[in-house]
Amino acid sequence: MGDPSTVTMRIWRGDTNGGGFEDHDVEVSSGEVVLDVLHRIQATQAPDLAVRWNCKAGRCGSCSAEVNGVPRLTCMTRMSILDPAEPITVAPMRTFPIIKDLVTDVSYNYEMSKRVPPFRPKPKPPDGHRMFQEDIERVQEFRKCIECFLCQNVCHVIRDHEENKPHFAGPRMFIRYAELEMHPLDSGDRRDLLQEEMGLGLCNITKCCSEVCPEDIHITDNAIIPLKERVVDRKYDPIVWLGKAIKGRRSGRAE
């Protein structure tokens, strides 16, 4: 084990009444991740420091925060990649309302998840479903999602524009729509819903969701853009469009 060294952790502490950054000097051993250090602060300096976490192995997606301004899983962020010379800032995800310290109210995501029309399987043949590996690989990528909500957090559509939340599903949910739309057994069609109520058009494909994804899911390239293209199939074929225009409908969001 390498020699423990001391770093300064600058952690946001507070609740709905407000708060600010607090410095904690703490020992760090080699191989440790940010979450280890947060736990050490809990055990030795601040027992009520609120941190959400579960598996500590990058598989449950609970411990999301912003480390030196970058949205990350604290359990997968090794201390060795951070510059110990300066205080290391750990802040809660900014897109969601604060509960306390590093814990935010992520219920927006669960609400949006409830609005996803569920899987609607095609009728089952007598000898059971048959699917082949090539049919499911594309969707399996999306199923890697651990719902850490870092993509939702980093997306400027809601990060910087709170007012968009009611009509924007967010990258996490777009993956979910994509997995349903591309599911070999699903018979639903969610394209109108996506464009009209879920704010697919609000996404300007600036790809921050893909950049922060700890599971390395190509959210923009493999889910959002293909969904946009599927919507184009349905809504923006210029010939269909022209017909609609003649009937007096204006372009833009349909509601």
């Binding site: 009520d48 609120a50 509960i99």
Partner: peptide, 8 residues
């Protein structure tokens, strides 16, 4: 501390 999200 208080009862609000208090891991301790």
């Amino acid at each position: 501390g208080n009862r609000l999200y208090n891991p301790g």
